[in-house]
Design a protein around this nucleic acid. Structure first.
Length: 476
RNA sequence: GCCUCUUUAGCUCAGCUGGUUAGAGCGCCGGACUGUUAAUCCGUAGGUCCUAGGUUCGAGUCCUAGAAGGGGCGCCA
């Protein structure tokens, strides 16, 4: 007999049908009711066991998270919690789980504790919901771009240039530290290394994606990226996934339009297709906020805040306007900001939070940043002071997207690289893209895990990736 | 990298200005009950109080150092 998944049972199976289900026991009440979950959906199937008909030895093995295979008949439920239930006829234990020795318990456990039990944490309601949604968002990303005529481009994980300018890199080598061959000057001789040169793990696929955009028109990358930054926050990982669309014949305004439309699509996809998981996560957050002071609680419940984002236009302002707004703000005048607001300096998290959470109360796109605080490849504006860069700021998590129109003018790009000490010989190919058939183009990078954080409401980024990699932590 | 908080039973925590045998809820185990929805009721077991030093007649409690974890900041996605 073929197994039926719980999601199928609840959606399609008819009363009176004989079915076989397999899954994990979420609870076993009164020696009679198994709540069975197989991961196919958030819901559980109630299985009714007439314990009088089974050996006590078998009944005892039905315990928290033991794995069972049950054949039975689907019947209308006598209880009020569910419409249908499975009347068990044959029960087989596929995997025992000794409740006394098992590290999970059918009760609330802290996220910090579960993080240490990452091999089991996906079995909990919270993490199974989070990881179903993580999948949903990944799928929606590919669907959105495919439906809009973009090509999925795989950029390299190992890169030969360290000029991408997005932060500290992880070195890739086959040398052992103590036996690495040295050159005459006593430095490590990377000519003898696997690739014949120094290599690193990528911090961004953008520069390579630009090659694709100038050939295929619209491309996107979606893959892991690596930063060896010593940043210890709930929004940073050493290994994270990034989405980077790159579009030919697109300026900064088209870039912002794409960022907004794309973000809304991902949120809407989850609302439309995963209501049970979102409802559970929302309830979980509301419960945990009950003992918190009001100002620490979310302004809106999870689902409402997601709907609010897709129903409203993102606020779009220039960096200069943002600085003026901040300098006229109440916290600025009362000296409540820790950091100075001054044209030319980057906006700090406290400033961004004021703009998003206090001033506009919705996502904000800030554009035209001073060129001194942005990367070499961003297109210089006519004022000679700013570049066509934009950041999308979300409530709660800050910067979700950073993007720009790229500098397509060879002379301007070269000059900027010289000013910023970017070695020309490492990016010769990037410069040649401007020499032969170049065109205005733009793109952005979205932090995948930050988007998953926003949609699931999880406060720590380590809880939205199955195996977090962060400073001092690479377990599992 | 900086600042700050935490570490007591399997889990979540309480433990006052240092004082005698370190507690609760849940979980586990045993029993009762059996149409439950975090089932209920009764009972048992379970603790190098993170580690190492120190102060003291006496340290879970105070001091110093270290370890692990959380939160905030910086850097960014």
């Amino acid at each position: 007999m073929k197994r039926t998944e719980v999601s199928t049972v609840l959606e399609e199976a008819k009363i009176g049908e004989e079915i076989l289900v397999k899954g994990w026991v979420k609870s076993f009440r009164a020696n009679r009711f198994i709540a069975l979950n197989d991961g196919s959906c958030f819901k559980t199937l109630q299985v009714v066991v007439d314990f009088e008909n089974y050996p006590e030895e078998l009944i005892k093995r039905i315990s928290f998270h033991s794995c069972v295979s049950i054949k039975g008949e689907l019947v209308a439920s006598q209880g009020s919690g569910q419409k249908v239930e499975l009347q068990a006829k044959e029960i087989e234990i596929l995997g025992d789980s000794d409740a006394g020795a098992y590290v999970l318990q059918p009760k609330k456990m802290t996220q910090e504790y579960l993080r240490e039990k990452a091999h089991f944490r996906m079995r909990t309601n919270t993490f199974s919901a989070v990881f179903r949604l993580r999948h949903a968002i990944a799928f929606a990303i590919n669907k959105y771009f495919n439906d809009h005529g973009y090509y999925y481009m795989h950029t390299p994980i190992i890169t030969g240039s360290d000029a991408e300018g997005a932060g500290e890199m992880f070195h890739v080598t086959t040398f052992k530290p103590d036996t690495a061959p040295k050159d005459e000057a006593g430095n490590v001789d990377y000519k003898q290394d696997f690739f014949g040169k120094e290599t690193n793990l990528t911090v961004s696929g953008q520069l390579q994606a630009e090659m694709g955009a100038l050939a295929l028109g619209k491309v996107y990358t979606f893959g892991p990226t690596f930063r060896a930054e010593n940043s210890n926050t709930s929004r940073h990982l050493a290994e994270f996934w990034m989405i980077e669309p790159e579009v030919a014949f697109c300026d900064i305004h088209g870039d912002m339009d794409l960022a907004e439309d794309f973000s809304k699509y991902l949120i809407k996809y989850c609302l439309d297709n995963y209501p049970d998981d979102l409802a559970f996560l929302e309830k979980r957050i509301l419960d945990s906020e009950k003992q918190m002071p009001k100002e620490q609680r979310r302004p809106l419940p999870l689902i409402e805040s997601l709907k609010f984002v897709i129903d409203n236009d993102f606020e779009r302002i220039t960096y200069s306007d943002a600085v003026n707004l901040l300098r006229n703000s109440k916290p600025y005048k009362k000296g409540r900001f820790e950091f100075e607001v001054e044209w030319g300096k980057d906006l700090q998290a406290e400033h961004e939070r004021w703009l998003v959470e206090k001033k506009f109360k919705k996502p904000v796109i800030v554009r035209d940043y001073p060129k001194g605080i942005k990367a070499f490849y961003m297109r210089q504006n006519d004022d000679d002071k700013t570049v066509a860069a934009m950041d999308v700021l979300f409530p709660g998590i800050g910067e979700v997207i950073g993007g720009s129109q790229r500098e397509e003018r060879h002379d301007k790009l070269l000059k900027r690289m010289e000013e910023m000490d970017i070695p020309e010989h490492e990016l010769w190919w990037y410069l040649e893209l401007r020499k032969f058939g170049g065109c205005p183009h733009a793109g952005f990078g979205m932090g995948f895990e930050r988007m998953v954080q926003f949609i699931t409401g999880m406060t720590n980024i380590r809880d939205v990736i199955p195996f977090p990699r962060a400073k001092g932590s690479a377990e599992f």
